[in-house]
Amino acid sequence: MMMHSNALNTNQIMRQVMYALVLGIGAAYYFFGWGVILQITLAVVTAVVVESAFLSLRKLPVKPAVSDGSAILSAILLAISIPSIAPWWIVVIGVAFAIIFGKQLYGGLGNNPFNPAMLGYAFLLISYPLQMTTWAGEFLGLSQVIDIIFNLTSVDALSGATQLDEVKTQLALGKVVAELDVHSISQAWINVGFLLGGLYLIVRKIITWHIPVAFITGMVVISSILYFINDQIYLPMQDHLMLGATMLGAFFIATDPVSASTTPKGRLIYGFLIGVLVIIIRVFGGYPDGVAFAVLLMNITVPLIDYYTQPKVFGK
């Protein structure tokens, strides 16, 4: 007859995170069109099918695990990280990889050391770099998107690289930052959408402030240092914050509690170092954005961070 608090249970927490994603997804829909929605649908269907199949293979009850929403949430996070016009098999393979190798093979929810969505993303980015970096250039209607995703028409006319990719190419060609138009209305609004959603999660006490604040601080500190060293080839921090997957990463990816550090102090270290790594990978690495790799790299360090950042116990 042990009593439980009236606070949210695990299923409700997952659902709240999905609600918090709505603003960011809405912004992405506004700029890129129906592809965003279609990718999410494909991802969710794949996640449910793969998770159910795997659970039955493991002879575990299917319904409670699928209805906890964790697989669906991972699928949504992966779907909004990939280009809205990527072919259908990209998202299907990515989600299947994330669920099987990122989650179920470790023992399912709560046992995975890596963020499943980011593991799926990294897998796709390494295996299919072209499809993973070709983004929609404008709002696309449903029929157009269906044609593209299911490989019925060529995408060339409608697509382009992301802003971060573009900046990288231009800098490599010898231009300086001042000459570039790094601003991207669409990316800024999507980032704002995820930022607002993230603040909602903090207000609802679903995540704590530690990881997002440390993440953004890490980015600001390292990008400011680089900008101070040479403002010709390094972007200022405000551009970094409003480009790429910054806010999605800070509030929704790095805060995945299962794979993140769990102590208050540890969360600050974990978030800060992800922020630093994101900038380092963006600036010096071979890929346009660094959130996925930064998160995965820091996932590895979590047991170490947790062990050395235990809070002082009462009376010790």
Binding site: H4, T10, I13, L109, G110, V258, A260, P311, F314
Partner: peptide, 27 residues
């Protein structure tokens, strides 16, 4: 009353915020 069914730990850390002696119950 029927007990609510138990689910997996997602390391959300609400327990360590509630712990009066500052332990990490999730660990």
């Amino acid at each position: 009353e029927t007990k609510p069914s138990t689910q997996e730990c997602i390391r959300c850390g609400q327990c360590n915020q509630a712990c009066p002696v500052d332990l990490l119950p999730q660990q």
